[in-house]
Structures are given as structure tokens and as C-alpha cells.
């Protein structure tokens, strides 16, 4: 059953009990592509996902560094707040956040899809662990080398944490590229819809469900993830497994 996972998905472009299609119909892709504003969805997905990654990079690294390396008033309280956030799923807060965005007039915009995920509690937690493992001596050596705190962070700590940071970004990419729930709740028009929501609309095509087109549409959603997965399989699995056994 598990092995059916990926490869079978491409087989499903054909009609049901036929395992191997007689002719490989690439035109299904064009059909799927034409059956909705998929380019728009695709671009939206890219904008949203990449914006989230960039913003996260700028919020996570300094926060994780501060939590790992400085003692300051209320540091524990702020870290506890981060950990609480880690435990709050989006399924719990979508309603109040929706109301908030609606009062700000931000509903159905990219910002509504990006802003709540501009920081990531889990990533801060993981990166903090990584930063804490860097031996104190290294920082002292840098201090003696007259490096500023800022320079220590981005010249020494960040390069050392690069594998963790890349893994966390991959993680984020997969999560937000795939996300269906949040864009479903926050968007109302094709102008800001992302791929998962756009594709799910294919189930409601009038005149019965066109399975082959639907599956072709899904390929657009799945292929980028699979490419990333096979390029960085070990990274990704390690990261996911780590979340389970931390």
C-alpha cells in the first residue's frame, strides 16, 4: 500500500483499471492547466511560500540566537510564550484571525496568507538547540578577534547552523506549499488562491468528475515537492523524524 504512494499517482492519469495507458496523454496536463487559472494559482503559491520562507529567515535566526545566547529580563517568559505558540494549531485560531483580517481589510490578500506564518515557533526551538551546541570558546575567540555581536551571529553562528536552517526552510516550504486549510479560509477569489485550493475546486467540475484531469492537476502540486524530496531526502526525513523523537 505504501509503495503505491508516488509512482501510482502518475499512472492514475489513465482511466481506472488500466494499469499502463496505451498512449501517454500529456494533453491531460494542458487540459487541467486550461480548466482554471492555474498559472495564477501557481504564482500565488510561489509568492506566498517564498515570502513566508524569507520572512521566517529574518525572524527565526535572531530570535533563536537571542534565546540561545543571551540572558535578559523575561527571557524565560518569552520563550514559554514561543513554546505555547508551538502547540497552537491553525485549526484553532482561524476564526478569530479571520475576523481580525476582515477588520483590517486584509482578507483575500497574499498578506493574510503570509503574515501569520512570518515566524515559526518550532523553527526557533530547533535553531536555538543548534545554537546552544556551539561551544562558548568559539564565541570568545571571535570576541577577542574584535568581531561585533552582529558579526559573530552572521559570520560564525549562522554558517555553522546552515544545515539546520536549510532543513527548517525545506520543512516550511513543504508545509506551506501543501497548505489547504489556511488559504481556503482566508481567500475568496482566484486572485489570491493558491494551488491546493484551486485544485480542490476541480472536484466540483460540472458534468461529473474528470479524474484524469484532476490527477494531472495534482501533478502540478506534487511534482515540486517530490523534486525537493528526492534531492534532499535524507535531510527531510531526519528533520521529520527528529520532530517525532525530540
Amino acid at each position: 500500500m505504501a509503495v503505491t504512494s508516488v509512482k501510482s499517482l502518475s499512472e492514475t492519469i489513465t482511466f481506472p483499471p488500466v494499469w499502463i495507458p496505451e498512449t501517454i496523454r500529456f494533453e491531460n496536463f494542458t487540459l487541467a492547466w486550461d480548466s482554471g487559472p492555474f498559472l495564477r494559482y501557481f504564482v500565488n503559491s510561489l509568492i506566498v511560500t517564498l515570502s513566508i520562507l524569507v520572512l521566517q529567515l529574518f525572524t527565526i535566526v535572531p530570535a533563536a540566537y537571542a534565546f540561545a545566547r543571551y540572558r535578559f529580563f523575561a527571557d524565560r517568559a518569552l520563550f514559554a510564550l514561543t513554546m505555547i505558540t508551538l502547540m497552537i494549531p491553525t485549526q484553532l485560531i482561524f476564526l478569530p484571525v479571520y475576523l481580525q483580517f476582515s477588520s483590517w481589510g486584509l482578507l483575500d490578500t497574499h498578506l493574510a496568507l503570509i503574515l501569520p506564518f512570518a515566524a515559526n515557533a518550532f523553527a526557533i526551538f530547533m535553531l536555538r538547540q543548534t545554537f546552544k551546541q556551539v561551544p562558548e570558546e568559539l564565541l570568545e575567540a571571535a570576541r577577542l578577534d574584535q568581531a561585533s555581536e552582529w558579526k559573530i551571529m552572521y559570520m560564525i553562528m549562522v554558517p555553522m547552523a546552515k544545515p539546520t536552517i536549510i532543513t527548517l526552510l525545506l520543512f516550511s516550504f513543504i508545509t506551506h506549499w501543501n497548505d489547504y486549510f489556511w488559504p481556503l479560509v482566508m481567500t475568496t477569489t482566484d486572485a489570491s488562491r493558491t494551488l491546493p485550493v484551486g485544485i480542490s475546486a476541480l472536484t466540483n467540475v460540472e458534468g461529473g468528475v474528470a479524474w484524469h484531469i484532476m490527477m494531472a492537476g495534482n501533478m502540478i502540486l506534487v511534482v515540486p515537492i517530490l523534486i525537493i524530496f528526492f534531492v534532499a531526502q535524507r535531510h527531510i526525513i531526519r528533520a521529520f523524524v527528529y520532530t517525532g523523537v525530540k
Binding site: 529574518f58 525572524t59 527565526i60 535572531p62 530570535a63 540566537y65 537571542a66 534565546f67 543571551y70 535578559f72 527571557d75 518569552l78 510564550l81 514561543t82 505555547i84 505558540t85 497552537i88 484553532l92 485560531i93 476564526l95 478569530p96 484571525v97 475576523l99 481580525q100 503574515l115 501569520p116 512570518a118 515566524a119 515557533a121 526557533i124
Partner: peptide, 23 residues
């Protein structure tokens, strides 16, 4: 340190902690 954690904390409070209270 406060400047460094501020962006993340603002996001958390605005989109996670406060909404829970509002809910």
C-alpha cells in the same frame, strides 16, 4: 536581545496568543 526576539514575538502574539483570547 529584545530587538532580536521582537519580530517573532509580535507575530506570535498577534496571530496566535491574542486570537485565542478573542475566541
Amino acid at each position: 536581545p529584545y530587538l532580536m526576539v521582537a519580530p517573532a514575538i509580535i507575530v506570535f502574539v498577534l496571530f496566535f496568543i491574542y486570537p485565542i483570547g478573542y475566541m
